[in-house]
Design a protein around this nucleic acid. Structure first.
Lengths: 115, 115
DNA sequence: ACCTTGTGTTAGCATTCACTAACGTTAGTG
DNA sequence: CACTAACGTTAGTGAATGCTAACACAAGGT
């Protein structure tokens, strides 16, 4: 039995890694209900705009936010489609976990019949 | 406006960080359909048992796997409840993303009425 | 044109993390 | 009790990453 192809993992890995950082999750929530520029986001936390800019780059590469230019400013907002991909990926994990619950019962049954 | 409480994030952060590592995801899938000891898991990949042991410790601390002793061996298996917590957390993210879709339409409407 | 404002980018540093190697621990066997 | 087998744990190393500081670029106002 193989290890399990991780081709799809690679596609989701970027988005998942982007979500792991707590500050990036906070940024994502911030731009979820309001379209904001990098400066306003930096003011919300206690970090430099540089850090926020890098976080936004990571989120954009992960397809979790989109960028819209408005004069000298660049407004960011969350991208529901990116989160949808993650959702389907994790749904597979849930399905696997259900499989585990089934085997859990079977294991109990075996233990009882062997003792 | 506050940054947004991250009290719940802290609780989920451990599980989420555990899932980010591709090898840990692979281990999780491996112990999802079969109860396995650390040695067998190590044989499935090309890593030492030490690394697998540490990964299992992380997964156990995250509540994603449980340990059952059988003589000198310790059998591991996935823990559906741990994944369920992550699911509810991420469902909040999805809900937030839907909110974004709504605001997206509103932003378009504003832009049309201002131009 | 000059200067201010708002932003992205690069260099360097400190921390974190996954991995290997060596040692300690527990359970079964003679 | 000695010996082996199966795991876990600690120390140490190399790579990845989040952060700040300095620099570069684009747009608008005077």
């Amino acid at each position: 039995m193989g290890v399990g192809a991780t081709a799809r993992d690679d596609a989701t890995d970027i988005a998942l890694r982007a979500l792991v950082e707590p500050r990036r999750r906070a940024i994502l929530r911030l731009v979820a209900d309001t379209e904001l520029p990098a400066g306003a986001i930096a003011d919300a936390f206690e970090v430099t705009r540089t850090a926020v800019s890098q976080h936004l780059t990571v989120l954009r590469d992960a397809g979790l936010v989109t960028e819209r230019r408005d004069g000298t400013r660049r407004l960011y907002r969350a991208r529901p489609e990116g989160l949808a991909e993650l959702r389907s990926f994790l749904d597979d994990m849930w399905a696997t976990s259900l499989l585990t619950a089934k085997n859990l019962v079977e294991a109990d049954r075996e233990r009882q019949s062997e003792s």
